[in-house]
């Protein structure tokens, strides 16, 4: 056994005193934190230029308190709305929202849609683990049909959201989807999303071994990641597949890229005009 006295290089971005993380064994949240700081490191972004805004739930604990940077840990579902206020006042900062499916799609779905429509320069990393993990495994807006959960003990009879498609339909400038297995692609997409002007969105399919895994009989991070690996299909390949063939699959890759004008930039242009006119 090799015992490490040095640390993994990315730990310099973390609040050391809170480690190890509070996440369960095999949880995907830590992997996403790992990818997040790697993306910032690759881009050589000073953490002082980044503010992480989160909601409530396990995935909101990814940056709060682990990431050593300005962090707003807000109320359930409202992270994007808080981030809107931040971005308007701090347009030069990288404003990153990290929260889960229950938070951003369930209680906060309205804010997600409107932020994408508004095309505000906020980056959203939506951690989709198909379940309300922190409260004990209730069905969420992304729980697949037919799966039993704590709040649907017989089976979930509701259709899940394809949230990346929804966000892209709302007008986001960049939308991608990866799983926690595709870490290198995920880091690349995160980098792209952070750099992208306008609303950028990465859906990250993640594993909750404790409160989702037990309902789908894949009780470890390894089993769930294996499942992601086997069932992921790249978006390019998926284009030639029928809806039936894609049922139960994870379409991964970059789904949309466009260049609508960013909201806070427009606000500033407008203000400039109004001030000039008003002062004659």
């Amino acid at each position: 056994m090799v015992i490490d006295k040095q640390e993994q290089r990315m730990i310099k971005y973390l609040r050391r005193e809170v480690l190890p993380t509070t996440f369960c064994q095999g949880c995907g949240c830590g992997t996403i934190l790992n990818a997040y700081v790697k993306a910032l490191d690759d881009l050589e972004i000073d953490p002082r230029e980044v503010v992480s805004v989160t909601g409530i739930g396990c995935s909101s604990w990814i940056p709060s308190p682990n990431f050593h940077g300005d962090t707003l840990h807000t109320t359930h579902g409202r992270a994007i709305a808080f981030a809107t206020g931040v971005k308007v006042m701090k347009p030069d900062m990288k404003v990153v929202v990290i929260a889960g499916d229950g938070d951003l799609i369930g209680i906060g779905g309205n804010h997600l849609m409107h932020a994408a429509r508004r095309n505000i320069g906020v980056t959203v990393f939506l951690v989709n683990n198909f379940v309300y993990g922190m409260t004990g495994g209730q069905s969420s807006p992304t729980t697949p049909m037919g799966i039993p959960t704590a709040s649907s003990p017989y089976k979930n009879i509701e259709s899940p959201f394809n949230i990346a498609e929804v966000v892209s339909a709302c007008g986001a400038n960049y939308v991608a989807r990866w799983t926690t297995y595709h870490v290198f692609s995920l880091v690349d997409s995160m980098k792209h999303a952070i750099q992208k002007k306008g609303f950028s969105f990465v859906e990250i399919i993640s594993q909750c071994p404790m409160n989702y895994g037990r309902y789908v009989k894949r009780r470890t991070g390894v089993e769930l990641l294996q499942y992601f690996k086997e069932n992921s299909i790249n978006v390019e390949k998926a284009k030639d597949m029928s809806e039936d063939e894609l049922n139960g699959k994870f379409v991964v890759g970059e789904l949309i890229e466009r260049n609508r004008r960013e909201f806070t930039e427009q606000l500033r242009v407008l203000n400039k005009k109004i001030i000039q006119k008003n002062l004659g």
Binding site: A81, F82, G85, V88, M89, N110, H111, I275
Partner: peptide, 27 residues
């Protein structure tokens, strides 16, 4: 806008107060 301030119409009142708090923490 005449004093270089920003006025937003949000999607609901929850978002309004959230944006206000976010802005306040941004100075």
């Amino acid at each position: 806008p005449k004093v270089d301030g920003y006025c937003l119409q949000m999607e609901d009142e929850i978002a309004s107060i959230a944006a206000v708090i976010g802005a306040s923490w941004s100075g």
